[in-house]
Each structure stands twice: as C-alpha cells, then as structure tokens.
Nucleic acid binder design. Structure first.
Lengths: 194, 194, 194, 194
DNA sequence: AATGAATGAGGGTTCATTCAT
DNA sequence: GATGAATGAACCCTCATTCAT
C-alpha cells in the first residue's frame, strides 16, 4: 500500500470510528451525516465518496465493529485460562470497543442484517461458531458442560447473557449478582447438588 | 360512562392500538404520526386532540402495553398449573399483546423510563415483584429452586429469557431449542445429575 | 328585546370582550379561536354561530372597541372644561377600554380596514370629525389655534400624538415629558414668543 | 474576501433583502419561510444554512435594516443644507430602504428589542442620539428651536413624525398636508406670530 | 479528491373551520 | 342552539443526498 492509499485508508477509518462512537452514544437514527462529518472533521460529501449512502455506512461501521470485537474475543478463547474463567470473561468482560454500547445501534444491526446482508450470521457461523464449539468441547471434556447439550443451545445462552450484560440499563443492577448469575449458568436454578 | 365518553375511550384505544402495532413492527422513530393516523383511520390532528405530542403518545402507548401484558402475566401466576409449567409459560408463552415486539420500541421505553416517569420500575416493584416472589417461593418449597438463590438473581434470568424470546430476530431460531433452554435454566449447563 | 334575545346578546358580548382582551394583550395573530373560546367559556362552534369567521370576528371586535372608546371621547368633547385641558385629555388620558393596547391589534385594524370595510374612515368622518371640528373651532375662536390651519392637519397631529402615547414602548419614556410635549404642540419647537 | 466568500455574502444579502421587502409589505407573521425562499430564489433549506431559524432571521433582517437606514440618515445630518431643510428631510424624505414599511414589522422589532438584544436602544443611544443632539443644537443656535426645550422632547416629536409618515395607511393622506404639518412642528397649532 | 452550497422530501405540530350529535 | 370531535391546509424545521467549483 503506497502513501496515497494509506492516507485514504486512514481517512476512511476516521469516518468509521467517528460514526461508531456516535452511533453507540446516541443511536443510529439520532445521528445525522452532518454530525458525523463534523466529528470526523471532513465534509459531508467526503463521506459519500467513501460510502455509497448512510445505509452502507452503517453496514460498514458494523463490520468494522464486529471485526474489532472479534479480535478480542479470540484472545480469550485461545488463552490458557481454565474453562470457567474463560466463560466468565466472555460473558462479563466488557471487552467490546466501547464500555457501553447503545442498544438501539445493536438492535438496528440485528434487525437489519438478519434480513439482508446477513453478515452477522455469516461471520458467526464462519468464525465465532467454530471457536465457541471448541470452547464448549473443552467444557464438555472437563465435565463442566452436559455432553448432551447442543452447541446451539449453549451458544444461545452465552450470547443472551453477553448481550444483556452489555445493556446500559441492566449492567449496574446485576453487578452485585455476578457470582449468583454465574452459578445459575453452571448449575441452573435448582442449584449445585453436592 | 355515557355514550359520548365511551366512544371517546374507544377511539383513544384505537389510536393506542394502532400505535402499539406499528411501534412494535417498525420501531418508534420510523413510524410517523401520519402513518398512525392512517392506520387508526383518523386524521393526524385527532391524534393531537387525544395526546399532547408524539412523546406523550409513546408514553401512553407504553402504559397501555404494560397494563395489558400484566393482566395476562397475572393469570398465569395465580393459576393452578404446576411450577415448571408456570415458569415455562411466563418465559415462552407469547402471552404479550403482540406476537413479536420490535426491540427498538422496547429499548426506547426501557431507556426512557429508567430516567423519568419510572413507571416500569414502579409497576414491577409494586405488582410484578410480589408475584414473582410468590412464584419463586413456590419453586423453592417444591424443590425446584435452590433456596439459597436470591429472588433478584432468578428474576434476572427469567426477565432476560422473557425479553430475549420476544425478539423478532431470536424467536425463530430458538423455537426448536425450547426444551434444551428450559433444561439449562433448571439444571445449568452442567446438566441434570441423576 | 325579550329574555331570549337578551341572553343571546349577552353571550355575544362575552365573546367580544374576551376577544378584545386577548387581542390587546397578545395581538391578533397569536390568539387562536380555541383560546378565545376557552376564555369566553363557550365552545369554538358557538363563536362561529355568532360570527362568520375569524375575519369578521376581528371586524366586529373592532367595531365594539371603537364604539366604546368613542363614547368616552364624546364625554370629554362636550364637557365644560377649558380648551387646553380638553386637548390634553384627548391626547394624554388613557381613556381607552384598556390601559395598554397591543399595537399589533391596532395596526392590523388600521391596515385591514383602510382597505376594505373602511369602517374606521366612515366612523371618523361621520362622528369623530364633526366633534373634532367643533373642538378645533372652539380653539380657533379662543385664539389657541391658528385659524389658517386645516382641520385635517390638526387632526393628524392630535391623532398621531394620541396613538403614540398609547404605545406600550413609548408611554413610560414620555411621561416626564408631558408638559414639554404639550408646549411644543401649542407653540412649536420655536417656542412661545412673549 | 475571496470569490467564495463574496458570493456567499451576496446570497445572504439577497435573502435579507427579500425578507425585508416581504416583512415590510405584509408583516412578519404573514410571511412564511417558503415565501421568502421563493422570492429570494433559493430553497427553504438554504435560508436555514444562513440563519438558524425564523427568529434569528428576523433579528438579522432588522439589523440589516437599521444599519442601512442609519447610513442615509447620517448623510442628511452632516450635509450642508440649512436647518429647516434637514429637519424636513429627516422627517419626510422616504430615505429609508423601502418607501413603505409595514407597521407590524416595526412594532414587532420594537417589542422584541425593547426586551432582549436591545440593539435598537444601543444604536440609538450610541449613534443616532449624538447626531440628533448636534442637529438640535444647530437649530437652537440658529434660532429655530427654543433653547429651553430638552433634546428628548424634540426627539420624541421627530421620531413620532418620522414613524408616522412611514406608515402605509398614513402616508397618502398626509402628503398634501406636508407643509401644514411642518408649520405646526415649527410654530405649534397657535401658528407663526408675525 | 474534496468541499461549501443547495435541495426535495418528509416530520411534527398548529389553526381556522366543519361535521355530527 | 350548543357542543365535542374531526379535519385539510399550512408552517417551521431537519435530513440524506446531489451540484458545482
């Protein structure tokens, strides 16, 4: 990549980052192109030079976001930590780009991209799922997970917890419940039978 | 209530119902007053005769929604069904006003009402929480729930599952997993020890 | 006039008075029919039963206003006070319905009715002008007014002073100047030559 | 100022001029942004690119107007014409931006600016008042004005006449009375004593 | 390639006026 | 005759997007 290309990429990333920041703070619909342009210190038209329209900008921001979070996710999975710790980190660690993610942003993506591009599906099936499978297999091998459970079901649970924990309105409330929640995750509401 | 009053109430409810329907299908911001008016078969101004502005309309729609769902929730709790069935119904039965609820609508409310009116907090603390407590006590008495678990922690799980199940993008996927998910809820990922 | 008619007249006057009050306080354009209805404690439609539309309502309010002020004006003119005192009263006394009249109201009338109905012209020519003529003749006879001056010119001056004094933004400032202003009116800027 | 800036200024002035023209002809409230846009041959949004909202547009139009009128006023005052002619020009010459000024426009500004910005007060006290003082002193020195009269009182008269002459509804009527009115201004209703 | 300027379409809201009881 | 309810038209303003330089 020559200097020219590099500067171009840099500018593009500036726009993506500004957009992501704003989307996560205020939601998608509340953020205008003009606002993004001002934050990224470019003109509105420059944005249109890099991205077809707001729709594809959102799409690209999302991909940028997923790629970034995925890298951090990967680190946890391949680490040498014991299984329960890994699970806890995946669920509770705010390892995402931002500490708090605007839910509307998240929802919008889920809604939009479950229909068309289906990028989220694709990336999860291609990348996350194998990692999760590996993680769950590890759990099953070490006796932490019932071997009869399907990966889909466990993944649903993990995903759900992960999502929920990230919600601004929820996070504060459950902080003191972390241990209990983890316990229920492992042993169910019926509790550990010793 | 005379005929006048009754027709007025009826029309108001029409607007509320149309709004709720649209909000749940498309989200709040995407739905214009004009659209609501057309759906409810009234003029835009009529809406303004009943509700001060869009903001308070949303508020009122929300209250309408909460009240309605709560009635159905109550029915389940006080029924004579065995505990596990009750829990399953609370979580999985689409007892809500609508089969599918738009998440942005839900998020908006959560966000909004965690700040101001705090109506959701109030109704949950005053009405839902006691019912939940009673239900959980029932579960503990019958050995379905570890007596050491706090109501808050269990409620978190129930609420999370309930919310998640309602999401458009999620519902279809987990339908075949219902049984497994219930199992995890009861026995954790470690599974039932027999 | 029977009791029925009387009640009708009473209601009509209520509306007129409410309108006048509001017009003078806030100006014409800022006052809605709904506001008048609420102030007069009638329904909006009732207003339309008495007055064709807002336009004619304004017209009628104006006539109501002019008639009322005219009565008070007449009192001064026919009184036994000496000429200079009469003039001063006509100009400076806030003998109008309201202490302060919203200028927009006044202007609107002037503008509107100098074109069409021309009611103000008519009433002034028919009623005020003769009185003014009489007053000015009195002044000329007593040596207070140059006999060479036309009634129109003097009337313009009196009217102008009267209007100006009534303006909210002007009144306070000129209060301490009353005497000087009267002097200039009588003797001009060149002053009394003794 | 480069070509960019200059064209921008030009366009801004177009909008100001169109607004002023319309405000003066029809009053402020009756003139919509759409109408201004059409008159200035720009889109509505362009207006919003230059002015925050209608309120500040009105404000800026007013400043534009005051500045322009003041320049012409200054020319008269510093000219070499004899005193009576100057006075007559100040009062009667339609030296203002427009031949006729809508009174509602004027009133609105007076009302508005007696409260907040107070721009009119400021400009009059800082700029107009000194000029007027100088003019009146000239009149006193040359025996045209009674030295005992306060500047405030004379200014009141001048201002009043100036305002009144500008009124659409008044102008036509007093045109034939110009001479008489000037006489009254100089010598009062009692007339010149020779 | 990048920008300031411009725009069509649409959104929420208000108002004078009419309908239906 | 009086009212509550309803409405079409208009207004201010915002936004994603394009034009012209």
């Amino acid at each position: 990549m020559d200097g020219f290309q590099r500067r171009r990429e840099q500018k593009k990333q500036n726009i993506l980052e500004a957009s992501l920041r704003l989307f996560m703070d205020y939601g998608i619909q509340k953020v205008s192109i003009a606002e993004i342009a001002k934050t990224a210190k470019v003109s509105q038209v420059t944005i249109y030079n890099y991205f077809q329209n707001k729709h594809t900008l959102i799409h690209d921001v999302f991909i940028y976001y997923v790629d970034q979070s995925f890298k951090r996710f990967e680190v946890i999975i391949v680490s040498e930590a014991p299984f329960p710790e890994k699970i806890q980190q995946v669920i509770f660690n705010k390892q995402e780009v931002a500490a708090q993610i605007n839910q509307e942003f998240y929802q919008h993506l889920m809604q939009e991209y479950s229909k068309e591009g289906n990028y989220i599906e694709k990336i999860y099936n291609e990348k996350a799922l194998p990692y999760f499978s590996k993680l769950f297999q590890e759990g099953k091998d070490q006796g932490y997970i019932d071997p009869g459970l399907s990966d889909e079901a466990i993944m649903f649970y993990v995903q759900m917890l992960k999502d929920y924990v990230q919600r601004e309105d929820v996070y504060a409330k459950i902080l003191p419940l972390t241990e209990e929640i983890t316990n229920i995750f492992f042993y169910g509401i019926i509790g550990k039978k010793e």
